[in-house]
Design a protein around this nucleic acid. Structure first.
Lengths: 232, 232
DNA sequence: AAGTTGTAAAAACTCGATATTTTCAGGTGT
DNA sequence: ACACCTGAAAATATCGAGTTTTTACAACTT
């Protein structure tokens, strides 16, 4: 029996543990939840201290975030948190509707039992998490929405959807608590999308998904001024 | 009159001159024209010598290319040129058709004289360059296609189209000289797209553009094996 | 007062060296 | 023969210092 002891001692870190990756994850989170205001200068040295790491990982992380469009880079002049605007928000909303519609339809078309089970699970985890913990819920919420799409068998499309989803989260946090005031049954909307997906009714699922986005979108648009800041 | 002398003394370097940017441009070019084979390991130290620069710029450039999906990164294990496959090529082709269709229609909808003139100019430059110099023509060719789209007033969409276009160039170079054997009048196709755009006929322009892509796509597909390598 | 120029501080960028991790070849025991 | 361990070599990732560029501000000119 001895010869299998070492077998799987370590769980094989699927999550990268490099300083660069940690800096990337931390900075991404900070930008999404609004710890930096749009356009704010991101000084290497400051971040280096905050994240307790070297300048190289910080720079690399910021470079990666640049391509996610969460950070803007000006040559020889450093990095800033990406600017926001109502136009940008509406562009993202429109693209999201378009691309997620496409991805969802492909997902449904490829639908199998395994996907169905992943969906149910992702939905359950989201529901169970509840709204108590904003950040944790946000993560489950994203996981559910991405699970709807990830059967589309199109990695590039998924990457785009992922990116756009993140950009949207940021606007949601910018609008802040006001979002709670919506008179909508979000839980019901999610359940209805799930149901349509399980029924393999692509048209219905896509319509419900897009309505879901557009309603939140319309609500958010009213809340934001031209620069994407909360109105009052 | 003196008070305007200094007005625009320096052309204000629009082209960034940092080592990172130069490394990025050089590596992007090398990957697009196929100087690295798909999946090839990109060793920092080797590239450092080839590009005659430090390790930091090389790493940052590779990070940026990662987000362009031209380079893949494996944590603690360095960078590789992105893999290719027929599936990937076809995914890119499909997305391109979809997104460029959308962008072109928006461009036409926003069409004005200035855009029309930019189009004519971009087309002329492409024609004038001729096929003598592959790389130069490639640049003009891209400029023309992007000019068709860039009036869509949607920066994020443009970024996606740009990225997909680059990914496609790479497959075009992979297929190599064989592409010349096509029995098609490419110049005519371009002229027809241009004409439809100038006429503000969005449906016709979009149809012609997509046919243009799908024809090249079908030709390329036949030429590539499952791993995206030339068949013979 | 408005604008220009010069200088000092700050920040970004780059480099070379060090530390950490991975890879690979050779040896050992089953 | 096969898997497993071991240790040297190679490559990556990270750090800290040095260089270059930008920014801020004050003094000077018109």
């Amino acid at each position: 029996m001895d010869h299998i002891t070492k077998q799987a001692a370590e769980p094989l870190p699927v999550t990268p543990s490099s300083a660069t990756h940690k800096a990337y994850a931390a900075l991404r989170r900070m930008i999404l939840i609004g710890e930096f205001s749009p356009g704010e200068k991101l000084k290497i040295d400051t971040l280096r201290k905050v994240l307790d790491t070297g300048a190289s990982p910080v720079r690399e992380a910021l470079s990666l975030l640049t391509s996610d469009q969460l950070v803007e880079r000006i040559d020889q002049r450093g990095f800033r948190a990406a600017a926001t605007s109502k136009a940008n928000f509406e562009e993202i909303l429109g693209l999201r509707c378009h691309l997620e519609d496409m991805a969802l339809r492909k997902s449904v078309a490829n639908g199998d039992d395994a996907w169905e089970e992943r969906l149910v699970l992702a939905h359950h985890r989201m529901v169970r998490e509840g709204r108590d913990n904003d950040e944790a819920f946000e993560e489950r919420h994203k996981a559910f929405h991405m699970a709807l799409l990830d059967n589309c068998d199109s990695p590039v499309l998924m990457k785009f959807c992922n990116q756009l989803y993140d950009l949207n989260i940021r606007y949601r946090y910018l609008a802040g608590r006001a979002l709670g005031y919506q008179k909508r049954d979000i839980a019901r909307e999610h359940a209805d999308i799930l149901a349509a997906a399980i029924e393999r009714d692509a048209d219905l699922a896509a319509r419900r998904l897009i309505d879901h986005y557009r309603q939140t979108g319309a609500f958010l648009t009213d809340l934001l001024d031209d620069n994407g800041q909360p109105r009052d």
